[in-house]
Computed example of a mutant assay.
Amino acid sequence: MVGSAVADTRRLAASGSARCYRQILHGKDDYPLQGLIMTAESNKLLMSRFVEFINTADETLANELVAADALFYAPIRPDPLIGPRGYIEILGMMRSGFPDIQWTLEEMVAENDTVAARFTMCGTHEAPFFGVPAGGKKIQVQAVNFYRFQNGKIVAERGQPDLLTLLKQIGAISD
């Protein structure tokens, strides 16, 4: 993934769009994204920064990458969570049961303002989760999410983690 992002950045820099991509990869505030037309390729680069955010829950990255009014639809709630705080709430819910959880971006496809991403979530069940007491079991679960970008920020996400597999892996339900 990293090698791919570097190659994409070099190619895009050669096309004259380097300013936007340096900001995406390095988070430099001296290259504002507001008003720039974001391409599918630049949105894919933003996803690399987003993975850093979800693996650290860094509030600075949250504010950099997530629009204040972004909507996050999760299968565990009837109403969307909103903005950077809403996304940090999702991460907090996952970390409450799996303090060491990490996401790996396995693949993504981008078109216009939308990125489809497949992740693998890995962690250890060290605290109660959905009412299931900690069992110390390792999880490895897939998730497919769709993100919509606008002005260099995520404005919507529809997440579909494989909750059935997760619940099986922690012993909440049997095979």
Rank of each mutant, 00 (worst) to 15 (best):
D79L: 09
P75T: 06
L45D: 00
T56H: 13
E41A: 12
P84T: 08
G35T: 03
D79F: 09
L81G: 05
S96L: 05
N63F: 08
L61N: 05
D58A: 10
I82E: 04
A57W: 12
A70S: 12
I90D: 00
M93K: 00
M38H: 12
N43Y: 11
L45Y: 03
S48F: 04
I82T: 13
I90E: 01
I76A: 13
M47W: 01
L45C: 04
R77D: 14
R49I: 00
L61R: 04
L71N: 08
R49V: 00
S48H: 09
E52L: 13
D58Q: 14
D69Y: 12
I37T: 15
K44R: 10
S48N: 09
M93Q: 02
R85D: 11
Q34A: 15
P84H: 05
D58M: 10
I54D: 01
R95F: 04
F72N: 11
A67T: 11
I54P: 01
E89T: 05
M94R: 02
I90G: 00
E89S: 04
V51G: 02
L36N: 09
A70G: 15
E59A: 13
P78L: 07
A40H: 06
S96G: 10
T60A: 11
V51K: 00
M47S: 04
G86W: 01
P80H: 08
T56E: 15
R77S: 15
P75W: 04
T39P: 02
G92Q: 09
E64C: 07
F72E: 08
A40I: 07
L45P: 00
S42C: 10
A67Q: 12
I90Q: 01
I54W: 03
E52A: 13
L36P: 02
M38R: 10
P75C: 11
M38V: 15
A68K: 13
A40V: 06
I88Q: 05
E89C: 02
L45W: 01
G83P: 05
I90Y: 03
